[in-house]
Design a protein around this nucleic acid. Structure first.
Lengths: 234, 234
DNA sequence: CGGTTACTTGAGTTCCGTCAACCGAAGTGG
DNA sequence: CCACTTCGGTTGACGGAACTCAAGTAACCG
């Protein structure tokens, strides 16, 4: 029973996870909200809609995007187990700034906004986790902005996406050797992370392969020379 | 004595201000840290350095920027009275992601990280304000990212900067008439907010003036037709 | 097998960054 | 007071990087 509606027995908890709470506070978290299941490609949050509840993600990955009225898309972050969705906007009582869509079947818990705020007031250490969770959203937003503004050219932007993604997986100190990981995104989605068109992503990945910098095999990415990729932006 | 080292008598407090605390919690805030004065163009925080203290801004404006090693610059936000600087990174104990530089002479209070964390634990309602403050940083980061990624062309990006700035001043519902406000930024700085070159900003402002959309007079900006400007992005 | 979705590659075009020259205002120092 | 510098703004010319359009391929699934 690794993951489930029972927060007390759940093993997802890590330093970076919202559910990391003192033992005696877990029952209160566990009692909150209702457990839900979503299929792949379903929308959880809708940009522009009122933030009347938050979601805690147990299992699966969810992409968070901003969109323009012309259909242009920006992929800000991929959320994983232990992440909270819609927290900042629930606390400020503002409208959602991002749309959330499952990439695969997902398990999550929905908590009405008012219940969650009451929980934060009641269980003191949970405030820590809330700040931490918002700070995590902040980090990814800053990372997106940096990438879009500071990476000189298209190659730099794409390299930045790949490197940042690899960093988000393991916190090992910069290793000079190859890194391989799963990245279940289409070129279109990669493009919307880097602010590039689908075609440009394809062309650049071909170029990276030709130069032995990185390669895409199925849904796995291999970075042969992370250092050289990093040198593309700076 | 409108603004000073005495938090209890200070009038800056507003809904969006970190210093908005219950009466009985103000003395604790007031007792924290040391009061400092900075001249214009001084650096308060340095990107990449350890976040060992936070700053509360009393008076003056401060620009928050990210920079690439090649000298490219992104201006993320202008902080004003009541804002907290470096909060997210202090809480996560990560390095600063932005550089802070005064635009004009500033009064602020420096609080060592550990003292501030202790304060958050001790004074419960302060956690609310902390989340709120981080959420504010989050908002501006998202706004930057949106602008850079979703505004189709240069005109849209610049229009987005102007409109967002005007929105940050007054929360009046969208008024169709002209808006005038002070914007003490050079074209260079405007460019680094929009991800544009200095020359492009000049050209676009000339174009906006010719089309009676907006005008820059000294350090004041007048938006004659906010609606048409908004139509340039979206 | 048809249909869909994603990827690939080429050709044409446009937008904006860069380079360059110039101007006016403000500040500096003798 | 005036020469000098600096900074910010303005405008023109040019070129290149990336977007768009288009056509075709590959993989997958009913």
């Amino acid at each position: 029973m690794p993951v489930g509606s029972n927060c007390i027995a759940c093993v997802v908890r890590g330093t970076d996870c919202f559910c990391s709470l003192p033992e005696d506070a877990l029952p209160a978290l566990s009692a909150l909200g209702t457990h839900l299941h979503f299929a792949a490609r379903e929308r959880i949050l809708h940009e522009g809609f009122a933030a009347d509840r938050i979601f805690v993600l147990f299992h699966g990955r969810i992409k968070l995007t901003a969109s323009s009225s012309e259909g242009r898309l920006l992929l800000v972050r991929i959320a994983g187990p232990g992440d909270v969705l819609g927290l900042a906007d629930a606390i400020n009582h503002t409208k959602h700034k991002l749309t959330a869509e499952t990439l695969e079947p997902c398990e999550l818990k929905a908590v009405p906004r008012v219940d969650f705020l009451a929980f934060l007031d009641r269980v003191q250490p949970a405030s820590h986790n809330a700040v931490h969770a918002v700070a995590k959203d902040y980090d990814s937003a800053i990372l997106s902005a940096r990438r879009l503004a500071l990476s000189g050219n298209a190659a730099g932007k794409l390299a930045s996406v790949l490197i940042d993604w690899s960093r988000s997986l393991k916190s090992t100190t910069a290793d000079p050797t190859a890194i391989e990981f799963s990245m279940p995104l289409t070129h279109e989605e990669l493009g919307s992370m880097a602010g590039l068109s689908r075609e440009t992503v394809t062309r650049l990945l071909s170029k990276f392969r030709a130069e032995k910098l990185a390669e895409q095999v199925g849904e796995r990415i291999i970075l042969y020379q992370p250092a050289k990729l990093e040198a593309l932006y700076s």
